[in-house]
């Protein structure tokens, strides 16, 4: 594991204690109010009548990380699916750089990179082969091996794994590959679906760091997560979702004085568990 600077190593040693916000590379100032990812009154009702998303409006500007918090069935993944154009909104729209995803999904998707929850890559390909394929698919002209390897280095995948088939990779290793793909695609926005679930603490820490770096490079990042601590640690803005609605939204500075966990539990109390089961 080669991390870039000494302060990161210090952070890694702080695992176990709740890391304070200051130890993560500082969030950039809330500069550009022009949102890159935006939903306007986004609503999705499935064929079976379930209202998965109810007039959701949120914005993510470049250099910002937006964390959607919520239980199962809260509508986080539906939101991501709408951004990806995998489903059509019932009403409202999801915009990427001003392009409605259901109107021109291809042009919209040129502007996003996506890292799925349980990262799936081709098990019979090596890490580099996977990278090569997906990066080219992302619209980048083919990169040479060194550039690919460098990206894998950056996300912290050991050199000896670069030419191994994905078959034996752990979840953390696969996620590193996926992040490398997202980095190399160099899209202005990144969508992450439960990026930290199932990662060991060390991998989670490294991941958080990398995300901070990407934010500082000016990416607009939208992630869905269950993980209150990570959300609090890294997000510029946290939205708490329940049964398709955005029930609370907090700016980073607002969180400083508030107990996010208590907030979350408060909003999540009540009948949400049953809804979760239904979904």
């Amino acid at each position: 594991m080669q991390l870039d600077n000494a302060s990161d190593r210090d952070n890694a040693s702080e695992l176990g204690s709740v890391p304070d916000l200051g130890s993560v590379p500082g969030p950039g100032p809330a500069t550009n109010p022009e949102p890159l990812l935006q939903t306007i009154e986004l609503t999705k009702r499935y064929e079976d009548g379930v209202l998965a998303l109810d007039r959701l409006s949120l914005e993510v500007a470049p250099g910002q990380i937006y964390a959607m918090l919520g239980g199962n069935g809260a509508g986080k993944t539906t939101t991501l699916n709408l951004f990806l154009g995998f489903i059509e909104p019932t009403s409202g729209e999801a915009l990427i750089d001003g392009i409605a995803t259901h109107v021109d999904p291809l042009r919209a998707k040129e502007r996003i990179a996506y890292v799925s929850e349980n990262v799936a890559l081709y098990p019979q390909f090596t890490a580099l082969q996977n990278l090569d394929f997906f990066v080219r698919l992302g619209g980048r002209k083919s990169l040479d091996r060194e550039q690919l390897s460098t990206a894998l280095d950056r996300v912290g995948l050991q050199r000896e794994a670069h030419n191994k088939r994905l078959k034996g990779f752990s979840k953390g290793m696969r996620q590193k590959c996926a992040l490398a793909i997202a980095i190399l695609k160099d899209a202005p926005a990144i969508l992450l679906d439960e990026p930290t679930s199932g990662l060991d603490p060390k991998a989670g820490m490294e991941f958080t760091h990398l995300l901070g770096e990407l934010r500082d490079e000016g990416k607009a990042i939208l992630m869905s997560t269950h993980d209150i601590f990570r959300a609090k640690q890294i997000a510029n803005r946290v939205g708490i979702m329940d049964r398709g609605r955005l029930v609370a939204e907090r700016e980073r500075h607002e969180l400083a004085g508030e107990d996010l966990e208590a907030l979350y539990v408060r909003y999540m109390a009540g009948p949400s568990e049953e809804v979760a089961c239904l979904a």
Binding site: L84, L106, R107, K109, Y114, A120, L121, G138, G139, K185
Partner: peptide, 14 residues
């Protein structure tokens, strides 16, 4: 089922 389809279609692939 593997999930690679999502990843592929998250790109600008018709």
């Amino acid at each position: 089922e593997a999930g690679t389809l999502r990843l592929i279609l998250s790109n600008a692939v018709p």
